[in-house]
Design a protein around this nucleic acid. Structure first.
Lengths: 358, 358
DNA sequence: ATTAGCACTCAACTGTTTGGAGTGCTAACA
DNA sequence: TGTTAGCACTCCAAACAGTTGAGTGCTAAT
């Protein structure tokens, strides 16, 4: 059987109506509110065909039809129109721009949730690939050193190192020199145990204490790199706006998933992979397509945003399968560019202090 | 009417039974499963009295009784026994101890949620009252400075300062000296605009650039101080284990509250206040006693923990009114001491790197 | 190919009934 | 005087039956 023009029109009408009402839609409704001027009986025949083709399903006999995953997929791929969306509240967001990346992300994700009435997530960009710009060891006291590492994107990481024996100023100076000459320009991912032992060798291991400090720094950087992805969510309560998600069972599973950030990380990874493969733009996961078990009843729309320096993060919107894909996709698309723009014109965001503004 | 021995026994039996079953408890149950050897009729008379006194209520005529807020209050104040609780999984927690305060707190709150099957929260200690130990400005390039502030408890804060004009090494040295002599030993709360303008005056305002840097640092420290309380929650899904909390309406409100950390902050503030007033130990908020509207159907049990240096945070357990107060209170008490101990023997936790351990 | 018409299905709603758990009251009892 | 047995009463919850209405599939006529 072929999906001809008319069937497509009818399918689209069904999906659009269902997205609006959330109720299974019957043949009569389509017959009345569509320009085709066909009787409900004809529509019924076509619907029967569409069901056979797998685009729609009946929740039970003698109910109207609702779109299947396949139906939604077709809709998303071919029927969603690109609108030049009003960028809603992103401008107001600018005003609140603070100096900390974390805060920005939390605000974005919150704004997006309020805006769309869906649950939202955002991942902080990973900086494993960023290069070291500056390393500094400072002596706090005889037994403690402060280690500060600045990496591309002006991200600052610091750690206090407890020593087992006293250290003198000279060693600190030497270490500073050593670290800066050998590590500057490398990415965090480059810095591993092998490299450190090379440095130690090259330096001739003057003293136990230097070796100890180097080891610790290696540990610290590795820990920083291994750190799980930071993901912020917002609008978890929005799932209760959609009856198909808000029974105890499902709601509980969803809430758990939102708490377990490593499950959400699957979306981030998958999205990044897909975009790497050139499938740039917006990713949509409909029901079963989702990599996360608990989200089989949801649809998730994601996109990455860029920070320059090759850093990228992912934004996602989680809602019922009958979410307003058109709005969500357009919203996300404009947000994606806004964010990318915003970080570009004004990087580095993290820890940046706009000295002019109060 | 007086609450004599027998009434108290019956009341306790009612509450204990209700905590177990979650069902309204009838006179017959008490008559059978209590050592008093009274007929259900007698119990009924007593129950009628207890209801008149306000300790129990009937959800509807011809149902058993359930404890009122007042009943729970009596139970918590006088009938909960102190057990030497097994500290369950706290030891296993030690193993996972990482070097970052944030991670520790997240683990504690998660462990506690898994352990109690309730929703949990923990607040990161505030360090407004901690004194500055060390300040360092480093020149990253002509237009950027890195500012690092170490405060008591070895908490490190850093910011990158963007300048509107170039700065030379000499000014940086001067600023470092100035800042360390004038700010060391002060608490973050002490550092305000007035003080900064004093410093500027005293320093004679050699140059625009120095003034600019000082202003920025003041801004930064103030922002750091004003920052909202950091609160982590876990086990939000646990509310679905208790039918009285899991209808859409209530669940949604609760989830929203858990997301809005500033509402939870009310508990933290209240608990700190109460403990300051000498009411040390465990705080229990039953139903209406809660400072947060959305939690009128819940009970919340909180405690503070100490970090030394006067820093303190708050842990809280959020559950239905019929939560297992005995278990929760004991659990929290032992956790409170464990945490306090843990931080004491091994402070400072934040950013600490155990150089011996891998 | 389209449509009108009709029988059929099924969820959702509306009583209605029934059973059981629990109460309050009263009268009898120790 | 405190306790108890007995009984009528209440009310929820579950089960059941009847009704309604939206929707379908099929068939025969256009």
């Amino acid at each position: 059987m072929e999906l001809d023009e008319r069937k497509l029109t009818i399918l689209e009408a069904i999906i659009r109506t269902y997205l609006e009402t959330g109720e299974p839609v019957g043949s009569r409704t389509i017959s009345k509110y569509t320009a085709l001027n066909l009787s409900s009986a004809t529509i019924r025949n076509e619907m029967s065909d569409l069901e056979e083709m797998g685009y729609i399903v009946q929740p039970h006999t003698s109910a109207g039809r609702i779109p299947s995953d396949k139906g939604y997929r077709l809709y998303v791929d071919h029927l969603v129109k690109e609108k030049t969306q009003q960028v809603t509240a992103l401008n107001s967001l600018m005003i609140y721009k603070t100096n900390r990346m974390e805060e920005i992300l939390k605000q974005v994700v919150r704004m997006l949730a309020a805006n769309t009435q869906y649950t939202t997530m955002i991942s902080a960009p990973s900086y494993k690939r960023n290069k070291v710009k500056f390393i500094q060891l400072s002596k706090l006291n005889e037994r403690q050193l402060l280690n500060v590492v600045v990496i591309e994107g002006n991200i600052v990481k610091n750690h206090i190192i407890d020593l087992t024996e006293n250290i003198d100023e000279e060693s600190v100076l030497k270490l500073n020199l050593l670290l800066n000459t050998r590590l500057n320009g490398l990415t965090l991912a480059d810095i591993n145990l092998g490299l450190i032992s090379n440095i130690k060798e090259e330096a001739g291991i003057h003293s136990e204490i230097i070796s100890e400090v180097l080891d610790t720094i290696a540990d610290v950087i590795r820990a920083e790199t291994d750190e799980d992805m930071e993901i912020y969510t917002s609008g978890a309560n929005n799932i209760f706006k959609y009856p198909e998600l808000s029974d105890s069972e499902k709601a509980s599973r969803l809430i758990t998933t939102l708490e377990e950030k490593d499950l959400l990380a699957d979306f981030v990874k998958d999205t990044e992979q897909k975009e790497e493969k050139g499938d740039t733009g917006i990713q949509v996961y409909i029901g079963e397509e989702s990599p996360v078990e608990a989200m089989k009843d949801c649809s998730v729309v994601t996109a990455t945003y860029e920070l320059g320096d090759g850093m990228q993060g992912t934004i996602g919107i989680i809602g019922p399968k009958r979410m307003d894909y058109e709005k969500v996709m357009n919203n996300l698309k404009s947000l994606k560019t806004s964010l990318t723009e915003m970080f570009k014109e004004d990087k580095p965001p993290e820890n940046k202090v706009d000295s002019g503004k109060k």
